[in-house]
Design a protein around this nucleic acid. Structure first.
Length: 257
DNA sequence: GGATATGATTTTGG
DNA sequence: CCAAAATCATATCC
């Protein structure tokens, strides 16, 4: 029963709902968010495949069940000429057959469920579609991180600002800082170089992009403002003092939201 | 193709 | 409940 419900919920079992056209329309409607439209329709297509196979198999089983039942019935009828066979016995026979076949159907349903689950995880698990952030986003995040090494915990507002500037979500900013903190701590020695590197960049000021490897064209025309205002204003005086004492420093300035 | 980097999720500790 | 730590799954580099 659970399996049935699940299959219906996933749209594998249940009403036919007009085949591909309906599914496609559904997909495009559900993908109003936009960026995941392609993956979603792909998901839909795969789901349709599963669905089709499932129904095919189901029908096949049903047919086989009927054939087998009639076959048994014929045998019984034949036997009834040599010995009396009660209707009750026939009914029992039929029930046994149906039970057998329904257990086979159960297996089909279960494996279909499994397939759907795998499909879901394949498409819905964000880990499987990881995309690296843009170069600029990494720059912005790193700048903030190394400018606030003594307290790399951006507040909610700061996270939102960073998210906007990087074109990612607040959650992603949080993830990034979580990863960065732990991975920075893991090898301070090496990362210190990076810290210095970013400190140097900050000192260099306006053009933190050193053009290391990519002779390609400049990046996107990113709507004006950016750099300046935020990053440089970092800490008070002495660059980055040793982390030695306390981490708590209230932000020297909080211009607005 | 494997080694490493990196974003996301899951587990764990306070 | 939040963040650290562990872990997963992919991207990217070589």
């Amino acid at each position: 029963m659970r399996l049935d419900n699940m299959l219906i919920a996933e749209g594998v079992a249940g009403p036919e709902k007009g085949g591909g056209a309906g599914a496609a329309a559904n997909a495009s409607a559900a993908a109003g968010a936009g960026d995941n439209a392609i993956e979603h329709s792909d998901y839909r297509a795969k789901l349709g495949q599963i669905r089709q196979i499932y129904h095919q198999e189901l029908e096949k089983y049903e047919q086989a069940c009927n054939e087998f039942t009639t076959h048994v019935m014929n045998l019984l009828r034949e036997q009834s000429r040599t010995r009396p066979i009660t209707p009750k016995e026939i009914e029992r026979m039929v029930q046994i057959i149906h039970k057998k076949f329904s257990s086979i159907q159960m297996q089909l349903k279960q494996s279909t469920c499994e397939a759907v689950m795998i499909l879901r995880s394949r498409f819905l698990d964000a880990r499987r579609r990881r995309r690296n952030f843009s170069k600029q986003a990494s720059e912005i995040l790193n700048e903030y991180f190394y400018s606030n090494l003594s307290n790399p915990y951006p507040s909610e507002e700061e996270k939102e600002a960073l998210a906007r500037r990087c074109g990612i979500t607040v959650n992603q900013v949080s993830n990034w800082f979580g990863n960065k903190r732990i991975r920075y701590k893991k090898n301070i020695g090496k990362a210190q170089e990076e810290a210095n590197l970013y400190a140097a960049k900050k000192a260099a000021g306006a053009s933190p992009y050193s053009m290391s490897g990519t002779p390609g064209p400049m990046m996107s025309p990113q709507p004006g403002e950016d750099s300046m205002g935020y990053g440089i204003a970092g800490m008070n005086g002495s660059g980055y003092s040793g982390v030695g004492g306390m981490g708590y420093d209230l932000h020297p300035e909080s211009p607005d939201v």
